[in-house]
């Protein structure tokens, strides 16, 4: 609850300030939005850490190997970071850079998910064979 209030407060404050700055100095407004985003991500990183620990604990109990969970978490992390970065670039009207970020994110996600793909392919082969 405390975290949610802080995040909402920072978000609202940054929005009002960005609106005020937008007319005269749009560059500063954009920088403020990016900074607010960063602060919010740092704030929720504690909670994200706890959630990830719980996921690992549950995966251990279920006998899910790290070979499954770790690529999934990395892939989801890449998806999130790529999404934030691409949206930030679009906010700054840099759609070409946003596209590059997205392509880069996609390739990185595929690369990180390779072990997961491999383990699924092995599983399917063992099922069939």
């Amino acid at each position: 609850m405390e975290y949610a209030i802080r995040v909402a407060g920072i978000g609202l404050l940054a929005t009002f300030c960005a609106l005020a700055l937008k007319r005269d100095t749009p560059g500063a407004s954009y920088l403020l939005a990016a900074a607010a985003g960063t602060v919010i991500i740092v704030l929720i990183s504690d909670m994200l850490g706890s959630i990830l620990d719980f996921c690992r604990e549950l995966a251990d109990m279920a006998g899910v190997s790290g070979a499954v969970l770790s690529p999934l978490l990395k892939t989801l992390g890449i998806a999130l970071v790529t999404q934030f970065a691409a949206e930030a670039s679009r906010d700054a009207k840099e759609t070409a850079i946003a596209s590059y970020i997205e392509v880069g994110g996609m390739v990185a996600a595929l690369y990180v998910a390779l072990p997961l793909m491999r383990s699924v392919v092995e599983l399917v082969s063992s099922l069939a064979g």
Binding site: A67, L76, I78, L80, V120, L123
Partner: peptide, 29 residues
Amino acid sequence: VSSFAERTGGVANEIVPVAGTLAICAVVL
């Protein structure tokens, strides 16, 4: 993760289902 991308239709919409499918496959299969 996909809820972030749902409104904007970003790249996460493409990555998340594939990663999720692979992980669920590994557990259920």
